[in-house]
């Protein structure tokens, strides 16, 4: 398995002086293609901050994020935006679907940002909706869908630009246990492949069984990496 990304001594703090809070403290790890990597830990442990830094959203104070041998944060803002658009797919905790657009239009957004013509983007979006089992929901507004279906629309949108790295932020937080497990199981079976790395931030132990590796964080520090998922953790 090749390396999808490498974090080197990533550090992030908020505030200055006495108000300075260290959110992530010299965290280093690698994520590989073909694996599902979980970042777990209690609230406030720095999981989301770490996720934001490796996905090109939040600039670290120290350290590097190496993608294809280049330091992500040593590039221009435009190049970082291109990285997010082309290399990373996001599934947000609250999905952040656009209620005024149809489901297919929501999925097509990354394609449209990549200048794919509107009609072609919608056709390709429909194909991604088929991948997540929502082929017949393309013309509906997202609010007409159930929570699990909205999650799958968000996944379809995340994979629409065919990214190398998929980022899930608390994917089961808004779902009941059964639906949550089904979603992650579906991701492992249908979305993960040898050219893709999936990073999931969660504190939901019910879905630990789907992880290839689990990184545990506490107080901004990486306290352990468990290979093999549930049993080791």
């Amino acid at each position: 398995m090749g390396t999808a990304l490498q974090a080197v001594a990533l550090t992030k703090w908020f505030g200055e002086g006495d108000a300075r809070t260290l959110a992530v403290n010299r965290v280093s790890f690698e994520a590989s293609f073909g694996e599902i990597l979980y970042i777990v830990g209690p609230s406030g442990s720095g999981k989301t901050t770490l996720l934001s830094m490796i996905s090109g959203i939040l600039r670290p104070n120290e350290g590097q994020v190496l993608v294809e041998g280049r330091d992500l944060w040593n590039q221009s803002d435009d190049a970082i935006a291109e990285f997010r658009l082309g290399k990373v797919g996001f599934v947000f905790q609250d999905y952040h679907l656009f209620p005024r657009l149809t489901t297919a239009e929501n999925v097509a957004i990354p394609l449209i940002l990549k200048q794919v013509p509107w009609d072609e983007a919608l056709t390709r979006a429909q194909a991604f909706l088929e991948v997540v089992g929502l082929a017949d929901k393309g013309l509906l507004p997202p609010l007409k869908l159930s929570g699990g279906e909205q999650q799958r629309v968000a996944i379809a949108r995340a994979i629409a630009s065919e990214p190398d790295i998929l980022i899930f932020d608390e994917p089961t937080a808004s779902l009941d246990g059964d639906t949550g497990r089904k979603i992650v199981s579906f991701v492992k079976e249908h979305i993960l492949n040898a050219q893709r790395c999936i990073v999931i931030v969660t504190h939901d132990s019910r879905i630990f069984e789907y992880a290839d590796r689990i990184m545990n964080m506490e107080d901004g520090r990486l306290t352990g990496i468990a290979n093999g998922g549930l049993h080791e953790i």
Partner: peptide, 9 residues
């Protein structure tokens, strides 16, 4: 914000 995260400039 979501658009920005996805890659909109």
């Amino acid at each position: 914000g979501a658009l920005k995260a996805i890659g909109a400039k």
